[in-house]
Design a protein around this nucleic acid. Structure first.
Lengths: 124, 124
DNA sequence: ACTTGACTTAGAGCGGGCTTTAAGTGGTAC
DNA sequence: GTACCACTTAAAGCCCGCTCTAAGTCAAGT
């Protein structure tokens, strides 16, 4: 699979995919005889995972660390699990705080109904 | 209330507060005779609102627009309400997508239990 | 043989959101 | 009066995460 195909499949640009590989956020992708990246299905799964975690705001740095541990093999399983648990905790926290904001916005919107009604009453 | 007090109260730096004011994200804060910012309670409410929205990822630009409309008076009430509704929609979407990510992470963590158990079995 | 177009690299550039710097003023403590 | 510290401004700088540029290679089509 070429970089362009992978980019299209996951809605990333080829620049971003090369950037991710360069900083160690993806495994080094195999090349054809002429040096062109050839993504395997397993590479694609990494792309999918990374895209998902980035969309949730997990930093490039954190994900690089995860990939680094993965490359070291099964003796890092426990630490990787800890990393995931920590990421999970952070995302759950983020959801909670966003839910708070939502509540606040809803209250504010309630106030708007009243203000707006009053304002339109005065216009008459 | 001085800028330092407000900064402490809301967990922002004085730099950030000045920056917010400069770009139009807060009303222009009144000054004492010698030119020192003097925050009113109403200013503080703005700080609180802005901090809340920024924490939810609403862009500075969007918030500036909201503040701009507010300053124009009650004839912009309807448009401000529309802005808030749009912000609400985006935040709700964000919560949904984070919830998705959480589910995915949980699945991955399930896999880890199995892998880890298998690995430790092999160590024996 | 030549054009086209997708790929390659290293490295520079960009946008958002602060954050720091430089240079200066004002008010209180000794 | 002078040391000190919090405040002021305009402008430059920084970090993250891409994004773009320049210069070049390769393979297929005509």
């Amino acid at each position: 699979m070429t970089i362009a195909e992978v980019a299209k499949r996951y809605g990333l640009t080829t620049d971003t995919l090369r950037y991710y590989e360069r900083v160690g956020l993806l495994p080094v992708i195999g090349r054809t005889a002429s040096g062109i990246r050839n993504y395997t299905e397993s590479d694609c799964e990494w792309v999918s995972y990374i895209k998902c975690m980035r969309s949730a705001g997990v930093s490039v740095e954190t994900l690089v660390e995860y990939v680094r541990l993965f490359r070291q093999g099964p003796e890092t399983l426990a630490r990787r699990k800890q990393l995931l648990i920590e990421q999970r905790r952070q995302i759950a926290g983020r959801i909670e705080s966003l839910t708070e904001v939502l509540r606040r916005l809803d209250k504010k919107l309630d106030g708007f109904e009243a203000d707006l009604a009053r304002y339109e009453e005065n216009l008459k």
